[in-house]
Protein backbone atom coordinates (compact mmCIF):
# COMPACT_ATOMS: atom_id res chain seq x y z
CA UNK A 1 0.00 0.00 0.00
CA UNK A 2 2.68 2.43 0.95
CA UNK A 3 4.76 1.20 -1.93
CA UNK A 4 1.82 1.78 -4.23
CA UNK A 5 1.41 5.28 -2.81
CA UNK A 6 5.09 5.92 -3.23
CA UNK A 7 4.98 4.80 -6.79
CA UNK A 8 1.89 6.94 -7.53
CA UNK A 9 3.47 9.87 -5.84
CA UNK A 10 6.67 9.26 -7.80
CA UNK A 11 4.76 9.13 -11.07
CA UNK A 12 2.94 12.35 -10.30
CA UNK A 13 6.20 14.02 -9.46
CA UNK A 14 7.74 12.75 -12.63
CA UNK A 15 4.87 14.08 -14.74
CA UNK A 16 5.08 17.45 -13.06
CA UNK A 17 8.81 17.52 -13.61
CA UNK A 18 8.51 16.45 -17.21
CA UNK A 19 5.95 19.19 -17.78
CA UNK A 20 8.26 21.75 -16.21
CA UNK A 21 11.17 20.49 -18.29
CA UNK A 22 9.02 20.81 -21.40
CA UNK A 23 8.01 24.33 -20.46
CA UNK A 24 11.66 25.20 -19.79
CA UNK A 25 12.70 23.92 -23.18
CA UNK A 26 9.86 25.77 -24.85
CA UNK A 27 10.82 28.92 -22.95
CA UNK A 28 14.48 28.58 -23.89
CA UNK A 29 13.63 27.97 -27.53
CA UNK A 30 11.08 30.79 -27.54
CA UNK A 31 13.47 33.25 -25.95
CA UNK A 32 16.14 32.21 -28.42
CA UNK A 33 13.77 32.83 -31.28
CA UNK A 34 12.80 36.26 -29.98
CA UNK A 35 16.38 37.29 -29.38
CA UNK A 36 17.81 35.61 -32.45
CA UNK A 37 20.28 37.83 -34.30
CA UNK A 38 21.66 36.41 -37.48
CA UNK A 39 23.80 39.35 -38.45
CA UNK A 40 25.59 40.62 -35.38
CA UNK A 41 26.24 44.24 -34.70
CA UNK A 42 26.66 46.75 -37.52
CA UNK A 43 29.52 49.16 -37.90
CA UNK A 44 27.93 51.95 -35.94
CA UNK A 45 26.80 49.81 -33.05
CA UNK A 46 23.20 50.33 -32.14
CA UNK A 47 21.46 53.12 -33.98
CA UNK A 48 20.86 56.02 -31.67
CA UNK A 49 17.54 57.67 -31.50
CA UNK A 50 17.93 61.07 -33.05
CA UNK A 51 16.13 64.16 -31.80
CA UNK A 52 15.42 67.56 -33.28
CA UNK A 53 15.29 70.75 -31.26
CA UNK A 54 11.88 72.44 -31.34
CA UNK A 55 11.43 75.58 -33.42
CA UNK A 56 10.93 78.42 -30.92
CA UNK A 57 10.57 81.24 -33.42
CA UNK A 58 7.42 83.29 -33.81
CA UNK A 59 5.87 84.60 -37.04
CA UNK A 60 7.74 87.66 -38.26
CA UNK A 61 6.21 91.08 -37.62
CA UNK A 62 7.48 93.43 -40.33
CA UNK A 63 9.11 96.56 -38.93
CA UNK A 64 9.47 94.97 -35.53
CA UNK A 65 12.28 92.54 -36.17
CA UNK A 66 15.26 94.34 -34.76
CA UNK A 67 15.75 97.22 -32.37
CA UNK A 68 18.98 99.00 -31.45
CA UNK A 69 19.12 101.01 -28.28
CA UNK A 70 22.02 103.23 -27.28
CA UNK A 71 22.74 103.74 -23.63
CA UNK A 72 25.10 102.76 -20.86
CA UNK A 73 22.56 101.24 -18.47
CA UNK A 74 21.96 97.64 -19.58
CA UNK A 75 18.72 97.24 -17.68
CA UNK A 76 17.14 100.27 -19.25
CA UNK A 77 18.42 99.53 -22.75
CA UNK A 78 17.15 95.95 -22.48
CA UNK A 79 13.69 97.06 -21.44
CA UNK A 80 13.58 99.65 -24.17
CA UNK A 81 14.82 97.29 -26.86
CA UNK A 82 12.21 94.67 -26.06
CA UNK A 83 9.51 97.28 -25.72
CA UNK A 84 10.33 98.56 -29.22
CA UNK A 85 9.71 95.11 -30.65
CA UNK A 86 6.29 94.95 -29.05
CA UNK A 87 7.11 94.18 -25.46
CA UNK A 88 7.94 90.93 -23.73
CA UNK A 89 4.28 89.92 -23.94
CA UNK A 90 4.68 89.60 -27.68
CA UNK A 91 7.14 86.80 -27.11
CA UNK A 92 6.07 85.11 -23.92
CA UNK A 93 2.54 84.06 -23.07
CA UNK A 94 1.35 83.58 -19.49
CA UNK A 95 2.04 80.12 -18.14
CA UNK A 96 4.78 79.31 -20.58
CA UNK A 97 8.19 77.86 -19.78
CA UNK A 98 11.05 80.01 -21.04
CA UNK A 99 14.60 78.83 -21.62
CA UNK A 100 17.26 81.53 -21.51
CA UNK A 101 20.63 80.75 -23.03
CA UNK A 102 23.24 83.23 -21.87
CA UNK A 103 26.90 82.89 -22.73
CA UNK A 104 28.42 81.32 -19.62
CA UNK A 105 31.38 79.90 -21.47
CA UNK A 106 34.07 80.85 -19.01
CA UNK A 107 34.61 81.07 -15.31
CA UNK A 108 35.49 84.73 -15.59
CA UNK A 109 34.15 87.75 -13.73
CA UNK A 110 31.36 89.92 -15.22
CA UNK A 111 33.80 92.81 -15.48
CA UNK A 112 35.69 91.12 -18.28
CA UNK A 113 32.57 90.76 -20.42
CA UNK A 114 33.61 87.32 -21.59
CA UNK A 115 30.21 86.10 -20.46
CA UNK A 116 26.73 87.57 -20.57
CA UNK A 117 26.31 90.24 -17.92
CA UNK A 118 24.42 88.85 -14.91
CA UNK A 119 22.29 91.98 -14.52
CA UNK A 120 21.02 91.48 -18.02
CA UNK A 121 20.12 87.83 -17.39
CA UNK A 122 18.40 88.72 -14.12
CA UNK A 123 16.38 91.49 -15.74
CA UNK A 124 15.31 89.22 -18.58
CA UNK A 125 14.21 86.58 -16.08
CA UNK A 126 12.18 89.17 -14.21
CA UNK A 127 10.57 90.39 -17.42
CA UNK A 128 9.51 86.87 -18.30
CA UNK A 129 8.26 85.95 -14.86
CA UNK A 130 6.73 89.18 -13.64
CA UNK A 131 5.68 91.01 -16.75
CA UNK A 132 4.86 88.16 -19.11
CA UNK A 133 3.80 85.88 -16.24
CA UNK A 134 5.75 82.90 -17.50
CA UNK A 135 5.28 79.79 -15.39
CA UNK A 136 8.95 78.96 -15.25
CA UNK A 137 12.22 80.34 -16.51
CA UNK A 138 15.26 78.17 -16.86
CA UNK A 139 18.77 79.48 -17.45
CA UNK A 140 21.20 77.02 -18.88
CA UNK A 141 24.43 76.63 -20.83
CA UNK A 142 27.06 74.00 -21.46
CA UNK A 143 30.23 75.95 -20.67
CA UNK A 144 33.76 75.13 -21.74
CA UNK A 145 35.11 75.28 -18.21
CA UNK A 146 33.57 73.49 -15.25
CA UNK A 147 29.86 74.41 -15.39
CA UNK A 148 29.35 75.06 -11.69
CA UNK A 149 32.28 77.48 -11.45
CA UNK A 150 31.25 79.19 -14.66
CA UNK A 151 27.77 79.88 -13.38
CA UNK A 152 29.16 80.95 -10.02
CA UNK A 153 32.05 83.16 -11.11
CA UNK A 154 30.23 84.83 -13.96
CA UNK A 155 27.61 85.91 -11.45
CA UNK A 156 24.88 84.53 -13.69
CA UNK A 157 23.99 81.64 -11.38
CA UNK A 158 23.25 83.85 -8.42
CA UNK A 159 21.61 86.68 -10.34
CA UNK A 160 19.30 84.40 -12.28
CA UNK A 161 18.23 82.27 -9.36
CA UNK A 162 17.57 85.35 -7.22
CA UNK A 163 15.39 86.65 -10.00
CA UNK A 164 13.44 83.39 -9.80
CA UNK A 165 14.94 81.29 -12.57
CA UNK A 166 15.99 77.70 -12.35
CA UNK A 167 19.60 77.02 -13.26
CA UNK A 168 20.21 73.78 -15.14
CA UNK A 169 23.76 72.57 -15.31
CA UNK A 170 24.71 70.20 -18.12
CA UNK A 171 24.71 66.51 -17.27
CA UNK A 172 25.30 63.59 -19.57
CA UNK A 173 21.70 62.43 -19.52
CA UNK A 174 20.49 65.84 -20.72
CA UNK A 175 22.25 65.35 -24.04
CA UNK A 176 20.71 63.60 -27.01
CA UNK A 177 22.01 62.92 -30.48
CA UNK A 178 20.77 65.03 -33.35
CA UNK A 179 21.34 65.35 -37.06
CA UNK A 180 20.74 68.64 -38.80
CA UNK A 181 18.81 68.20 -42.01
CA UNK A 182 20.93 69.68 -44.77
CA UNK A 183 23.87 70.02 -42.40
CA UNK A 184 27.40 68.91 -43.12
CA UNK A 185 28.90 68.84 -39.65
CA UNK A 186 26.08 68.26 -37.20
CA UNK A 187 25.55 64.61 -37.89
CA UNK A 188 24.57 62.22 -35.13
CA UNK A 189 26.08 64.68 -32.68
CA UNK A 190 25.13 65.07 -29.01
CA UNK A 191 23.31 68.31 -28.22
CA UNK A 192 22.22 69.77 -24.93
CA UNK A 193 18.63 68.87 -25.54
CA UNK A 194 16.50 68.05 -22.55
CA UNK A 195 16.22 71.55 -20.96
CA UNK A 196 15.09 72.98 -24.29
CA UNK A 197 12.77 70.13 -25.16
CA UNK A 198 10.62 71.05 -22.18
CA UNK A 199 10.52 74.78 -22.95
CA UNK A 200 7.97 76.76 -24.92
CA UNK A 201 10.23 79.69 -25.79
CA UNK A 202 13.94 80.29 -26.10
CA UNK A 203 15.78 83.55 -25.67
CA UNK A 204 19.47 83.80 -26.47
CA UNK A 205 21.43 86.54 -24.77
CA UNK A 206 25.07 87.12 -25.62
CA UNK A 207 27.78 89.74 -25.45
CA UNK A 208 29.69 91.03 -28.48
CA UNK A 209 33.16 89.51 -28.45
CA UNK A 210 36.19 89.17 -30.57
CA UNK A 211 36.88 85.49 -31.34
CA UNK A 212 40.16 83.96 -32.34
CA UNK A 213 38.78 81.35 -34.66
CA UNK A 214 35.64 82.94 -35.96
CA UNK A 215 36.59 86.66 -35.67
CA UNK A 216 33.44 87.43 -33.71
CA UNK A 217 31.24 85.67 -31.20
CA UNK A 218 27.72 86.99 -30.91
CA UNK A 219 24.21 85.55 -30.79
CA UNK A 220 24.78 82.77 -33.31
CA UNK A 221 28.06 81.62 -31.84
CA UNK A 222 26.38 81.68 -28.45
CA UNK A 223 24.49 78.53 -29.38
CA UNK A 224 27.79 76.67 -29.62
CA UNK A 225 26.99 76.01 -25.99
CA UNK A 226 24.32 73.58 -27.08
CA UNK A 227 26.85 71.23 -28.60
CA UNK A 228 28.05 68.33 -26.55
CA UNK A 229 30.75 65.78 -27.21
CA UNK A 230 34.19 66.85 -28.31
CA UNK A 231 32.88 69.95 -29.99
CA UNK A 232 36.28 71.64 -30.31
CA UNK A 233 36.75 69.43 -33.34
CA UNK A 234 34.39 71.82 -35.14
CA UNK A 235 36.88 74.62 -34.78
CA UNK A 236 38.44 73.22 -37.90
CA UNK A 237 35.44 74.51 -39.82
CA UNK A 238 34.15 77.24 -37.58
CA UNK A 239 32.12 79.18 -40.11
CA UNK A 240 30.13 76.19 -41.21
CA UNK A 241 29.40 75.08 -37.69
CA UNK A 242 28.16 78.52 -36.65
CA UNK A 243 25.91 78.68 -39.68
CA UNK A 244 24.65 75.18 -38.92
CA UNK A 245 23.98 76.14 -35.31
CA UNK A 246 21.87 79.00 -36.56
CA UNK A 247 19.99 76.53 -38.73
CA UNK A 248 19.54 74.10 -35.88
CA UNK A 249 18.48 76.54 -33.17
CA UNK A 250 15.49 78.79 -33.86
CA UNK A 251 15.18 81.10 -30.85
CA UNK A 252 12.15 83.26 -30.13
CA UNK A 253 14.32 86.28 -29.50
CA UNK A 254 17.98 87.13 -29.18
CA UNK A 255 19.58 89.92 -27.19
CA UNK A 256 23.02 91.11 -28.23
CA UNK A 257 24.81 93.12 -25.61
CA UNK A 258 27.29 95.64 -27.00
CA UNK A 259 27.40 97.82 -23.93
CA UNK A 260 30.96 96.75 -23.42
CA UNK A 261 32.58 95.04 -26.39
CA UNK A 262 35.57 92.72 -26.18
CA UNK A 263 37.65 94.09 -29.00
CA UNK A 264 40.79 91.95 -28.70
CA UNK A 265 42.08 88.66 -27.30
CA UNK A 266 38.68 87.04 -27.59
CA UNK A 267 36.86 84.94 -26.71
CA UNK A 268 38.42 84.81 -23.27
CA UNK A 269 39.76 88.34 -23.03
CA UNK A 270 41.29 88.63 -19.63
CA UNK A 271 41.91 92.32 -19.35
CA UNK A 272 39.63 95.32 -19.26
CA UNK A 273 41.91 96.87 -21.80
CA UNK A 274 40.40 94.35 -24.22
CA UNK A 275 37.05 96.11 -23.80
CA UNK A 276 35.55 99.21 -25.34
CA UNK A 277 32.32 100.87 -24.39
CA UNK A 278 29.98 100.86 -27.34
CA UNK A 279 26.82 101.43 -25.26
CA UNK A 280 24.63 99.52 -27.66
CA UNK A 281 22.06 96.80 -27.05
CA UNK A 282 20.25 94.96 -29.77
CA UNK A 283 17.10 92.90 -29.56
CA UNK A 284 16.11 90.91 -32.58
CA UNK A 285 14.09 87.98 -33.78
CA UNK A 286 16.64 87.51 -36.54
CA UNK A 287 20.02 86.29 -35.29
CA UNK A 288 21.76 86.99 -38.58
CA UNK A 289 20.57 90.58 -38.54
CA UNK A 290 21.57 91.06 -34.92
CA UNK A 291 25.06 89.73 -35.58
CA UNK A 292 25.33 91.70 -38.81
CA UNK A 293 24.69 94.86 -36.85
CA UNK A 294 26.91 93.71 -33.99
CA UNK A 295 29.98 93.11 -36.13
CA UNK A 296 30.09 96.83 -36.78
CA UNK A 297 30.75 97.28 -33.07
CA UNK A 298 33.91 95.19 -33.56
CA UNK A 299 34.91 97.34 -36.54
CA UNK A 300 34.19 94.40 -38.80
CA UNK A 301 32.24 94.24 -42.00
CA UNK A 302 29.56 91.66 -42.66
CA UNK A 303 31.89 90.11 -45.23
CA UNK A 304 34.53 89.57 -42.56
CA UNK A 305 32.27 86.94 -41.02
CA UNK A 306 31.67 84.22 -43.62
CA UNK A 307 29.19 82.48 -41.37
CA UNK A 308 26.77 85.37 -41.77
CA UNK A 309 26.57 84.84 -45.51
CA UNK A 310 26.35 81.09 -45.01
CA UNK A 311 23.49 81.49 -42.56
CA UNK A 312 21.74 83.96 -44.84
CA UNK A 313 21.92 81.62 -47.80
CA UNK A 314 20.59 78.84 -45.58
CA UNK A 315 17.55 81.06 -45.02
CA UNK A 316 18.16 81.72 -41.34
CA UNK A 317 17.96 85.49 -41.63
CA UNK A 318 19.28 88.46 -43.48
CA UNK A 319 22.52 90.44 -43.35
CA UNK A 320 20.76 93.34 -45.04
CA UNK A 321 19.70 95.11 -41.84
CA UNK A 322 18.21 98.13 -43.54
CA UNK A 323 15.64 95.95 -45.28
CA UNK A 324 14.27 95.10 -41.82
CA UNK A 325 13.83 98.77 -40.91
CA UNK A 326 15.53 98.55 -37.51
CA UNK A 327 14.11 100.68 -34.75
CA UNK A 328 16.71 102.93 -33.19
CA UNK A 329 16.45 104.60 -29.80
CA UNK A 330 18.76 106.28 -27.35
CA UNK A 331 18.54 106.42 -23.60
CA UNK A 332 20.45 109.25 -22.09
Amino acid sequence: MTEENDRNFGRRRFLARAAKAGISIAAAAGASYLLYDSKGPGAGGKAKELVTLPDFSLPARPGQTISVVKGSDRIRTLNKAIELLGGIERFIRPGETVAIKPNVAFASPPMLAATTHPDLVAELVRLCLNKARAKKVIVTDNPINDPASCFALSGIGKAASQAGAKIILPKAHLFRHTTLAGGKLIKDWPVFYEPFAGADKLIGIAPVKDHHRSAASMTMKNFYGLLGGRRNIFHQDINTIIAELAMMVRPTLVILDGTEVMMTNGPTGGSVSDLRRANTLIASTDMVAADSYGCGLLDLKVTDLPYLAKAQSAGVGTTDIDSLKPIFATIS
Binding site: S24, I25, A28, S32, L35, Y36, D37, K39, G40
Partner: peptide, 17 residues
Protein backbone atom coordinates in the same frame (compact mmCIF):
# COMPACT_ATOMS: atom_id res chain seq x y z
CA UNK B 1 20.08 39.56 -28.88
CA UNK B 2 20.96 35.95 -29.49
CA UNK B 3 23.78 36.09 -32.01
CA UNK B 4 23.41 33.33 -34.58
CA UNK B 5 26.72 31.45 -34.13
CA UNK B 6 25.91 31.05 -30.43
CA UNK B 7 22.75 29.10 -31.23
CA UNK B 8 24.59 25.87 -30.38
CA UNK B 9 24.16 26.88 -26.75
CA UNK B 10 20.43 26.32 -27.09
CA UNK B 11 21.13 22.67 -27.86
CA UNK B 12 23.27 22.41 -24.74
CA UNK B 13 20.54 24.02 -22.67
CA UNK B 14 17.82 21.71 -23.99
CA UNK B 15 19.95 18.62 -23.47
CA UNK B 16 20.68 19.81 -19.93
CA UNK B 17 17.00 20.33 -19.20
Amino acid sequence: TFYRPLLWALATIILTI
